[in-house]
Amino acid sequence: MSRLREWLYYAALWLIALIFFAPIAWIVMSSFKTRSDILAMPPKLFFKPTLDNYVDLFNRGEIFLQIANSVVLSIGAVLIAVVVSFLAAFCFSRFRPKGTDFLMFLLLSIRMLPGPAVILPVFLMYVAFGWKDSHLWLMLFYAMFSIPFSVWILKGFLDGVSTRFDETGIVNGGSWFHVIFKVVMPQVRPGLIAAFIFNLIFVWNEYLFNFIIGGVNTQNIPYALSVGTYSDGGVNWTFISTMTSVYIIVPVVFIYIFQKYLLVGMTFGTVRGEV
């Protein structure tokens, strides 16, 4: 009986996973279909695959710029955010300045704001200072939005690291730099990776601000998807499916490699212990 229950349990898990994976599989399959195969009714499960869609996609001169922009903006912004967040979280965790809880709430409240609510003042500021269509300033903007969530994750992990490590390092003549980066940081590596992945997904998928305060030089893949959706008087399904298949490669690879850290990150470091 127990073996049957275990079999049913795993069968149910596989069924749920396949249901959620089905749309992604359909998009990837469609990227190897011709336009007529994609629009065929009833839908074709068996077809003659073609690479013409990928050839057409990479024959577009701007596609390489858009992919490079997505990679550079995402990784650059998230690296900046994780470094700044780690130092801020260390301060909140170890020194607990007055009003720490309220400050943490204010930080997180930034992420509660919907993008359209702040896009106009941000756009006016970027135009006034000449920051529009700049990789650096767009990267710093993404980092600003990524920092609050990262601070929350990392503070939870740092609270779980005993202060005895800090005291031991200082007593033995170590500097704060040594304590922070050589003693404490290696112990919160899962939190750093989790913060990196969560924010990478956010920046990788961001469209609105790239479209408004970005420009020709900084357009990313979501921007390309939005402007390339329609062509020849209709929806360009071959472009959408092919571009989407390329688009999901980076997050899928990162999530697959670091999947064990994501579950730990979702607990926000709530499992704590003393030395």
Results as ranks from 00 to 15, higher is better:
89 A>D: 04
124 L>V: 05
146 S>V: 00
174 G>M: 09
134 S>K: 09
269 G>P: 08
166 D>E: 09
90 F>R: 00
152 W>P: 03
68 A>K: 09
175 S>T: 05
48 K>F: 09
107 L>A: 08
126 Y>C: 01
91 C>S: 13
71 V>D: 00
32 F>P: 10
245 S>F: 06
49 P>I: 04
204 W>D: 10
124 L>D: 05
169 G>C: 12
215 G>K: 10
191 G>F: 02
38 I>G: 13
261 Y>D: 10
45 L>N: 07
251 P>M: 14
15 L>N: 01
198 F>V: 05
43 P>N: 09
158 L>T: 00
256 Y>P: 06
94 R>D: 08
214 G>Q: 10
84 V>C: 03
261 Y>T: 09
14 W>I: 15
64 F>V: 11
216 V>P: 12
247 Y>M: 12
179 V>A: 03
88 A>I: 15
252 V>Y: 10
83 V>M: 04
17 A>L: 12
56 D>S: 14
36 S>E: 15
7 W>T: 15
99 G>D: 05
163 T>D: 15
83 V>D: 09
148 P>V: 09
47 F>R: 11
125 M>K: 08
60 R>K: 15
234 G>V: 06
210 N>T: 07
86 F>H: 01
159 D>P: 04
17 A>C: 09
273 G>W: 00
133 D>T: 07
52 D>T: 11
274 E>R: 06
83 V>L: 05
274 E>M: 05
209 F>S: 07
210 N>Q: 05
15 L>F: 02
89 A>V: 08
107 L>M: 13
123 F>V: 03
130 G>F: 01
12 A>E: 06
161 V>Y: 02
60 R>Y: 11
57 L>F: 06
233 G>N: 04
148 P>Y: 02
61 G>V: 09
20 F>M: 10
